[in-house]
Design a binder for these strands. Sequence first.
DNA 1: ATGAAAATGATAATCATTTTCAATTATGCT
DNA 2: AGCATAATTGAAAATGATTATCATTTTCAT
Lengths: 129, 129
Amino acid sequence: MARCWEHWLSRSNPRVLHTLESAGGFASAQEVYQLMQREGQSIGLTTVYRALQSLVNEKIVDILRRDDGEAIYRLCGDSHHHHIVCKGCGDTVEIEGGAVEKWAQSLAAEHGYRDVGHSAEIFGLCPKC
Amino acid sequence: MARCWEHWLSRSNPRVLHTLESAGGFASAQEVYQLMQREGQSIGLTTVYRALQSLVNEKIVDILRRDDGEAIYRLCGDSHHHHIVCKGCGDTVEIEGGAVEKWAQSLAAEHGYRDVGHSAEIFGLCPKC
DNA sequence: ATGAAAATGATAATCATTTTCAATTATGCT
DNA sequence: AGCATAATTGAAAATGATTATCATTTTCAT
C-alpha cells in the first residue's frame, strides 16, 4: 500500500507521527515532545507543534480539546466517538455518535458551511450516583 | 494544572449574567469583561472569571471551547439551542437541535444515566470564508 | 458601630502555543 | 564537486488566556 503523504513539509513529521502512534494515537503536543525526549530523540518543541499542525492540515490527525483547553491530537481512523460523563463521579462511557455525525453534516450543509466538525457530550448522573 | 477555586456566591454574578445575556447568551470571559467595561461598569477581569465559574458550578451557564481553546460561556436557558460557528470569521448560526436532544436522552437512558444534559456544537467554514 | 467573613481587583505567575530569527541542512544547478 | 538558494530547525522571546496571591473594601450580624 503506497502512502499518499510522501511529500511532507517537514522531515520531522514521520518521527512525530510515530510517537503519536506509540502513545496510543492520542496525546497533546507537550506529551509527544516529552515522549520523544525520553526516548532520546533530538527534537524541539517548536518542531513538534509544527509537525502536528501539518499532520492536521494533511488530515492525518484530528485536533480536539481537553476540558482545560489544551489541544490533543488524535490519529484519524480511530473511530470517532463521544462521551457520557457523570456529573457525580466523573465516570465516562464511550458511545458511538452516528446520529450526531449526520445531524452535524446535514445542518451544516443546510447553512452552506464547509469543512465541518463538531463536538458533542452528554452529562448526567450515572446509576451509582 | 491545579484548580483551587471552590464555589462561592458572588454579588457580581447577576451583573455578569446580565451581560452574558445581552451578548446573546454566548461569550468568552474576556468578551464579557470588555462589554462591561464599555458599558461603564466597574469590574475586574478576575471577578468576571470567578462569576462565570460560579455560574458554571450553579449550572446556570455551560462552558464550551472555541477552536483555539478559549473558553466560551453559554446560558443554559429554557430556549435550548445549538450553534454552527464559523472557524474563519466567528459568525454564528443558531439552530434547533431536536435530533440531538433525542440522541442524548436515549443514549443516556440506555446507560442508566439520569438528570441528563448535553452540549453540542458544529464548527465549519461559512459561505463567506 | 465593630469585627469577622466574604468579595473584589490589581498584579504577578503559569502554561500552552506562536512568533522570531539566526543557524543549519537539504536541494538543485552548472 | 562547488555554489546558491530555499527549506527546516529550535532556542529564546512574545503572546494570550487563565489562575493564584494578597492587600483592601464591602457586607452583615450582633
